[in-house]
Design a protein around this nucleic acid. Structure first.
Lengths: 286, 286
DNA sequence: AGCAACAATTGGGAATCTTAATCGTGATCG
DNA sequence: CGATCACGATTAAGATTCCCAATTGTTGCT
């Protein structure tokens, strides 16, 4: 019978996330040698290499791709158990806002973790545009919000700085002579604002083929090949592709995803939810 | 950040199952001291005792009751991952028969484990009475069957020997003057056969109030208080109670739950399913 | 060639795990 | 009662494992 130490799985997940042993080691607060040995030990007990080591890249092997989701699942349950036991029984309602233009593959993970870690916490999620969420924060309708916010302050924590990119369907071909056909979120979307600014500065004509408040509508417009849009790198759904710089489209800046909290302080429950979000999304974690 | 070793959780689950540190140690192939220290370490990292130690009993504390299901879940996923990685990609269909009078709280666990351990295996479960399953085994309609079978043979493995007990609703009162009112599975059920044998030898009059092929029907008859039946100790549903010896009912023997396999050999896939069953139910495991 | 980046390896010291032996405490029995 | 038993806690020492700093090896870049 084989019993793994969670440190092995955690190291594996970190390396998979960083695609770099040394950076994973920093994140894990241990030496690079340790990470190397841990991965080796995992690979030996599994009997398959987990990474393809290339000259200047490390990528998941086929076996590694199979292991990753399950390793993450195990770690999530493990961490949830520990949080639950060490934090006493916090209870209460927490309202969490999420900017609707920000991809939410992490949402199901967050809800599962909160659910099993803190059965006493009732988590409500509200999807709105960033500026609306700011209002809700001020009026204390939400306790925490994940929004696009350029400037840091006392009540916000940086979660990530994904680069914004132009996205089209795979078969879309840029025609430089015509105005670029854009599909945007309705006014108020931070990504849209960045995109418009970049286009204006660049000077090329463009037209807003579509303006909507629905992410699904944008996706269908883009996948039909009649429009392009802007997204955060790393949140691009399958079937879409990033338009490279050589197409002539202007370069876009990095966005700034922050976790903002209400200014009059967080309840115990909201603090736990914040910690869970930081664990799933924060830079220093997995 | 805290990272547990699976050995800690496994020890916890074993002690919880055995309610005895020394026996858990045997099962884990380590010394009693080790188990004691592991539990202590877990309790310290959680900040709560996991067991109430009485002098001749060990029982789960409130905190322990919370931890147990999650610990089991984590271990299941962990073991599934390891099995998957170490066993290559076995694939195929496996037909598993389960005696329908045997409680199946383990079925969902088994299916989950097989599913994530061996995505290539298609597991079909057939619930039938033990004798029917024997026929299906002979005609090779099922590969494996969990049945009540008194005598061991080359193609069977003992899973457990639960004591059979008389069961009634909580408010049922035995009236020794009247014939005992029995609710039984239809002819062919091994438990029924044992019960009838014991009653016949004992000599007290009884009548078969109900004979059915449905476990649900038996349960409702018993819960109404008009009948009593026979079950394996440990599979008694909530709301029912065991009739003690002093009620005058005859003592019942131990049953014999075995895992029987088809005689012409198991496929790779069926072997893996067998291993999973043994891990979940077998005597030497959890 | 020289350098930079990065993972693998190595050797030894530190931390941890395991165990046999022992102890303490109730229960049981003559 | 006192002896004994069952069982978990504790302890001390030995075995094992883990971890890190330093080094090596490989590859791409200039």
């Amino acid at each position: 019978m084989i019993d793994l130490d969670m440190r092995l799985l955690r190291s594996f997940v970190s390396v998979a996330a960083e695609r770099n042993f040394s950076r994973a080691a920093e994140r894990l607060n241990c030496s690079q040698a340790t990470v190397s040995l841990r991965i080796k030990s995992l690979e030996e007990t599994f009997g398959h290499p987990l990474f393809n080591r290339g000259y200047h890249l490390v990528e998941l092997s086929a076996a590694g791709k199979e292991v990753l989701p399950q390793a993450q699942l195990i770690l999530d349950h493990h961490d949830a158990l520990i949080d639950k036991m060490r934090s006493g029984n916090v209870a209460g309602t927490v309202n969490l806002g999420i900017a609707e233009d920000y991809g939410e593959p992490f949402l199901s993970r967050l809800m599962r973790v909160v659910d099993s870690s803190f059965p006493g916490i009732e988590l409500n999620v509200i999807c709105q545009m960033s500026i609306r969420l700011q209002k809700l924060l001020e009026s204390r309708k939400v306790d925490l919000a994940i929004v696009t916010l350029p400037n840091q302050n006392d009540h916000s924590t940086l979660l990530s700085r994904p680069k914004l990119v132009w996205v089209s369907s795979r078969d879309y071909v840029v025609d430089r002579k015509k105005p670029w056909p854009m599909a945007f979120y309705a006014e108020g979307c931070a990504f849209r604002a960045e995109a418009v600014a970049a286009l204006t500065e660049h000077g090329h004509a463009y037209r807003e083929v579509l303006t909507t408040a629905s992410g699904e509508v944008i996706k269908s417009a883009v996948s039909s090949g009649t429009a392009i849009t802007v997204m955060a790198e790393g949140t691009i759904p399958p079937g879409f592709s990033v338009l490279p710089a050589k197409t002539g489209l202007p370069d876009l800046p990095h966005s700034c995803i922050q976790l903002v909290e209400r200014e009059d302080g967080l309840s115990k429950a909201a603090q736990q939810v914040k910690a869970s979000i930081m664990k799933l999304l924060g830079p220093a974690y997995m």
